[in-house]
Design a protein around this nucleic acid. Structure first.
Lengths: 122, 122
DNA sequence: TGAACACATGAACACTTGTTCACGTGTTAT
DNA sequence: ATAACACGTGAACAAGTGTTCATGTGTTCA
């Protein structure tokens, strides 16, 4: 799936290509995409990410901020870690988490734009 | 969650702000984000989207392309429709689906970039 | 009109996912 | 050394999700 300008989007227009439809995404790539976006498919993980958008924070403070148990937050941070969305540094018995890169911001913005678009009238 | 340049990302640096951590995303917004990304958290939906990236297609051709039953594809298209990721037009007893806008391309590209980044060495 | 077709939908079932609870590891303080 | 603390992890259970199967709606063709 690329971004060629000739791709049809936004309204269904006739397609005169009779060749069989082929899914361009391989099963493996589709699986990887789904796993990644699936991680973003939980409201508590978004709240954790949004708290980390303010700067790094300890697990216990994150738990207080999103009103979850430390255990639950730790489980979620583990998932975010495996998807490389957050990184951390240890300092004594505290562990400080922060966002790993800017991709999460861009994804957030793109999704927001989509969700904020008004539903069409017909 | 915005994109201010002063936000700390990519590595955990010290944060000397002692104010309590506040999650900027409201529960409702986090829920909406999760619902949207959750829809993208299924490999078969990505394969359907990737097939539609080539142009509009009928349900039955989509089913053949992604090797699923027409019923399963129809169920998935319904979900994609409610998230306004696809639109359709009816033509006799056929229904042609296509991508609704370009957001899906941008999301795909951003995720790809993230997934393709090499894991760091330490 | 009746049969075949293309698609949609509801119920049910298997499977996945997120939380809680209990416990373990490593660090700090007394 | 001992206790308290901060965090991580495994098992288990509740809740959510995707597929199949059966059926329904609307269209085309003989």
């Amino acid at each position: 799936m690329n971004n060629r300008p000739d791709l049809q989007a936004n309204q269904c227009s006739e397609n005169h290509d009779d060749s069989p439809v082929t899914a361009i995404l391989s099963l493996e790539k589709a699986q990887r995409m789904a796993e990644f976006f699936g991680v973003l498919g939980d409201p508590n993980r978004w709240r954790i990410l949004s708290a980390l958008a303010m700067g790094e924070h300890r697990v216990r403070d994150l738990a207080a901020a999103v009103d979850m148990s430390e255990s639950a937050v730790s489980h979620q941070l583990r998932i975010l870690r495996t998807m490389r969305l957050v990184s951390y540094r240890k300092r004594g018995r505290n562990v400080f988490y922060c966002l790993k890169d800017d991709h999460i911001f861009n994804l957030y913005r793109e999704a927001s734009e989509h969700l904020d678009e008004p539903p069409e009238v017909e």
